[in-house]
Structures are given as C-alpha cells and as structure tokens.
Simulated assay, not measured.
Amino acid sequence: MLSSDPLAGVRTRRIVALALDLVLVSILATVIWIALLILTLGLSLFLLPPLYPLIAFFYNGLTVSGRKMATPGMRALGLEMRMHEDGARVPFINAAAHALFFYLSWFFPPIFLVSLVDPEKRCLHDMLAGVTVVRRV
C-alpha cells in the first residue's frame, strides 16, 4: 500500500488532467477526421464516427505505456500511472484497457464515487486495469 504523500491531491489533479486530455484528443480526432474526409473526397464519411473512441484508446494506451508513464494532461499536472502491485511501468494492454474501462464508466457515473471511499483514491476502472495514479516524484 502506498503512503499518502504520492496520493495527495491526486483526485483534483486527475479531473483537470482529464479535461486537458479530452481537449487534446478532440483536436487530434478533428484534424484526422477532416484530413480523411478530404483525402477520400467524402467517401469515408460513414466510417469516421468511431474515430474518436479509437483515437482515445490509442492515445491513452501509447502515452501511459510510454517512457513518461502519463498522458500529456497527466504530465502537465505532475501525475503518472504505475502498476498497482509493484509500481512498475504500465504495459500497453493495461493502459488501453484502463481507457476502455474509463469510457465505459461514463454510462454509469456513480461508479466514479468509488474513489471517495477507496483509501488509495483509486477509481473502479483503475482497479480493473490493475493500475494506480500517483504524483510524479
């Protein structure tokens, strides 16, 4: 179990980091959507709606499993994600699963209240993916 220092202020920082990351993913998805729309002369219009979740999945998976262990929003707020059991770097599959579980959690928002009762401030999607978000040391 982690001490309280690496967990101080994590919830608030995660909310702000999420807002930053949603803006970045939205910009990235819009640019890619417009580029694909132009390149295919509008023929890809019906294939593009699932683009946002696909970009969000890879955005989280690649950035969290990368060498900085955080999305750009998390890095801006001094957070990083680690494996819960041993504090190791998060593999791509866990980071991508974390994103998937997070976006599925939006269908039932009370799930986010789990972090209020968990002593390690972990959300349910963190527990399912086996990760912990801590302040960068």
Rank of each mutant, 00 (worst) to 15 (best):
R136Q: 14
M74K: 15
L45F: 12
A97M: 12
T132C: 09
Y52T: 07
F92I: 03
S105A: 15
T40S: 06
D86T: 04
L45M: 11
A95H: 05
R135V: 07
L22V: 12
D86F: 10
A97L: 15
R82P: 00
V23N: 02
A129M: 09
M83F: 10
F57R: 02
R135C: 10
F46M: 11
L62S: 03
L7Q: 01
N94R: 14
R13D: 05
T30V: 11
L48G: 01
K121L: 14
E120R: 14
K68N: 15
R122I: 13
N60T: 14
L51T: 01
H98I: 07
L18S: 14
V90A: 05
G9F: 06
A70V: 08
N60G: 15
L100K: 03
S3R: 13
I38V: 13
A88I: 10
I38F: 09
R14S: 11
V133N: 05
L20R: 05
P49D: 01
Y103T: 03
G66D: 04
P72G: 05
V117N: 03
T132R: 08
R136I: 11
L128P: 01
A8Y: 10
L24P: 00
S115C: 15
Y59K: 01
Y59E: 02
P72N: 02
A8P: 00
L79Y: 10
L39W: 08
L116S: 07
M81L: 14
A88C: 07
F57S: 02
L28A: 14
A19L: 15
P50G: 01
M81F: 09
G66A: 15
S105C: 12
D5A: 13
E85H: 12
L116K: 04
A29W: 04
T30Y: 12
V133Y: 09
L79V: 09
H98Y: 13
V16P: 00
C123R: 13
T71F: 13
G130N: 04
A56G: 02
T12E: 12
L113P: 01
F112I: 06
V23T: 09
I15E: 07
S105L: 10
L24W: 06
Y103A: 01
V134L: 13
V114I: 15
V131D: 06
L104W: 09
S115V: 13
H125S: 03
S105Y: 10
L39N: 03
V16H: 07
G42D: 00
T63D: 06
I15M: 12
L79M: 08
H98S: 09
Y52M: 07
V23W: 09
V16D: 01
G73K: 02
L47E: 07
V16N: 02
V25D: 01
G66E: 04
L104P: 00
P91M: 02
A76S: 09
K121I: 11
A35G: 01
T132K: 08
H125K: 02
